[in-house]
Design a protein around this nucleic acid. Structure first.
Lengths: 226, 226
DNA sequence: GTCTATATTCCGATAGAC
DNA sequence: GTCTATCGGAATATAGAC
């Protein structure tokens, strides 16, 4: 037969696959995102993933080489989209608008993709063994580049002087908190109200206040852009 | 013998124990904090804990009823001290000083007790199965109480009007980020510089700016405290 | 391609000597 | 109290029928 060889024992998708194969692979990956984000890598079992995907355990292993291959695939798919909001922060746009829009997009991602956020958080909490290269490579370069953009905005007086990288950290921390610590937030706030409207207002206000250029040369950490 | 019955199969410390027993229990708990905070409950093994504590696996199980008993004990010991900074925020003190001091103490805890922070984060990320009661009980009451204090400060014009609970969330998020996501921070910042001095300055500045009472009734989210 | 049955490894916990 | 040896369950992965 002119067909491609068996998919078994492959962790990457074969060059050609039917729509059905693709759909099953995606069903497995989606189920895996559910299970891994809730239980971590070690806490997850192939049985959970298979059941949630509506397949048998050996059938899952027909499409992926093993548990770790599934995990790696899920993680790398997340990373593709995770950095998008930061990438699309435009050096040519209005500084305040760009930064506030970045905060807004990050918070929206926490709302729309909490599983992805939690999986990412778990991975980093445990020392990021699977994505070390990406963090110290692509992510580092991206943050360096955007930090220079922010520093330029500060120097030009478009925004208040701030430490650019710690500003980025604070944006990551505050927005992802609403996905990663949602359990705690719900228990503190009480019933199942949606915390995101208030969070959006609060964070927009907080970063707007932080970044508003000082009206006078009075109370900045540095007296003015040098 | 008039001695107390065997410690085996007990998860709570017996009424009387020698200094040696106490020291071994503490060695186990410290090793367990190491291992649980790095690998999570499921990822941790008794072998890791025993090795790090310098004991054999059965010997560990002589002092604790099982893996879960160790985990529960570690968690409950953390919780005793974890809420301390928030508790000691004084309604009678100067509002700006109290809040900035709270931020500073929380950041110091992230620096001094990163293992505790990470273990707590992992537990909440996975739905807080062990501490659900504490979160919806003690923590919720504490936050309610302190949120009222903060709201009072806002209403009195001592600090700018802010959503009190989301202010608390943002303090938790930004400070714990430096413990929980330390791997990412190190990779983004590059070499092993200590990020905490810059973080302390940045966060103090950010919250000071957020909370500074507006000089005029111009640019708050609400025009005035109602 | 998908299943049942099973091989195999790992880990929590116990038995029993000392 | 502490150890070696081991049980028993769980989970990854494979074999092989269909």
């Amino acid at each position: 037969m002119p067909r491609a060889p068996s998919n078994a024992a492959q962790d990457k998708p074969p060059l050609r696959q039917t729509r059905i194969q693709k759909a099953k692979r995606e069903a497995i990956l989606d189920a895996a995102l559910d299970v891994f984000s809730q239980h971590g890598f070690r806490g997850a079992t192939l049985d959970m993933i298979a059941t949630r995907a509506g397949l048998s355990k050996p059938n899952v292993l027909y499409y992926f080489a093993g548990k770790e291959a599934i995990y790696t695939q899920v993680l790398s798919q997340i990373l593709e989209t995770w950095l998008d909001p930061l990438i699309s922060m435009d050096a040519e746009g209005d500084p305040m608008q760009e930064l506030r829009a970045y905060v807004g997009r990050k918070l929206e991602m926490a709302r729309e993709f909490p599983r992805e956020s939690r999986l990412f958080a778990t991975e980093i909490l445990q020392g990021a063994p699977e994505i070390e290269g990406l963090l110290s490579g692509d992510l580092r370069r991206l943050v360096d580049e955007k930090a220079k953009v922010i520093a330029g905005w500060s120097a030009a007086g478009k925004i208040a002087p701030v430490h650019p990288k710690h500003l980025i950290f604070s944006i990551w921390a505050t927005t992802q908190h609403y996905a990663d610590f949602r359990t705690q937030i719900d228990m503190v706030l009480g019933t199942g109200e949606d915390p995101f409207p208030d969070a959006a207002q609060f964070l927009d206000h907080m970063f707007a206040r932080l970044l508003a250029p000082a009206p006078e040369g009075a109370s900045g950490p540095a007296s003015g852009p040098s």
